[in-house]
Simulated assay, not measured.
Amino acid sequence: MAITKNTRSKTMKVVIAPEPGGPEALQIVEMETPTPSGREVLVEVKAAGVNRPDVMQRMGGYPPPPGASDVLGLEIAGEVIAVGSEASRFAVGDRVFGLVASGGYAEYAVIDERNALLAPAGVDWTAVGGIPETYFTVWTNMIQRGQLTKGEWVLIHGGSSGIGTTAIQIAKARGARVAITAGSAEKCQKCLDLGADVAINYKEEDFVEALTKATDGHGFDLCLDMVGGEYVNRNLAAAAPGGRLVQIALQAGPEATINVWQIMAKKLWFTGSTLRARSVEEKAEIANELEQELMPLWENGQCLPVIDSVYPFEEVVDAHRRMDAPHIGKVILSFEGDR
């Protein structure tokens, strides 16, 4: 292991939520700086994304996987300052970003080198820090599982969210046609500006009727849904014959009454997945595909995260308040001014 002069001390500041609650439940405390082992690298964090799973963990509804720390944060971007004894992919000084099971809201974080990528050249830390969680999630669910292909219609619920804005851009890059739902005219317009073909304000229109009309009766070939609840049956009604529904979150709750006949009659495919608890090897497969398929776009300034707001690390409570309020795209924690 080699550690550079960038390592300031044996302790670091991290964010935890000792008790479930609102943004005020978050606390900045000191913890021992981790030491990388095996194929891990130690990263001096420059930016970390704030994501819905972080909010759920703060509220007590999404505990870390077994063996992971209780420090919040699932994605990081920063500079490698130390490497484990078996690590060979990155060197000290490399700019990297990637997924962690926990520990992203910290001055330093360890990450398995297989779940990290070199940061795209010319892209600032703020944007790089907003890539991992949403892009890994969208890629595995929309492309690997959902099998979206050129010319198909994809319906993306929550189009203005971090997941949604990412999904729009990836879908368009793959040649698909995109319909989204969002809750305001401003959000709908932002999605159209990103490339969506159809934007449906779900507060003013029934999305099933609106999508059916917009697609000349066809419906969606693939739906990426983070709502769940009563949306499930409506999604089935909006599906084209042979359509695929991929459930990625359950903001309206995990229970739904499903008209199974619609699945049978239309020959639909209904699946879902989570990302956080997946193995290092599974996440590595996603990372490899992202590197091959999207890195060229990122380096050309394309298909990058939509950034709603950036907060200094010390203002993590305000960052979570922003996550709890209406926003468009990603909320980012910046560590660049803290050291």
Rank of each mutant, 00 (worst) to 15 (best):
M1T: 10
M1S: 14
T4N: 11
K5Y: 06
N6Y: 09
T7I: 15
T7R: 15
T11M: 04
M12F: 11
A17D: 06
Q27I: 08
E32W: 00
R39M: 11
V41Q: 01
K46L: 08
R52F: 15
M59C: 14
A68N: 05
D70E: 11
V71K: 02
L72Q: 06
A77D: 12
A82G: 15
R89T: 11
A91F: 12
R95A: 07
A106N: 08
A109N: 04
A116K: 08
A121R: 13
E133N: 11
Y135N: 00
Y135S: 05
N141W: 06
M142P: 10
I143D: 05
T149P: 01
K150D: 03
G159R: 02
I163P: 12
I170G: 04
A171T: 02
G175N: 03
A176Q: 03
G183A: 05
A185D: 14
K187W: 01
K190A: 06
D193C: 00
A196Q: 01
N201V: 01
E205H: 00
D206T: 09
V208I: 13
T212W: 10
H218M: 13
L222R: 08
D225V: 01
M226K: 00
Y231R: 11
L236W: 05
A237D: 14
Q247G: 07
I248N: 11
E255L: 15
Q262M: 12
A265S: 00
K267N: 13
K267Y: 09
K267A: 10
S273L: 12
S279I: 06
V280S: 09
A284T: 02
E285F: 00
I286Y: 01
A287I: 07
E289S: 05
P296W: 14
P296F: 14
E299C: 09
V306R: 15
I307S: 06
I307F: 11
D308I: 00
S309M: 03
V310K: 05
V317R: 12
H320D: 13
H327C: 03
G329D: 00
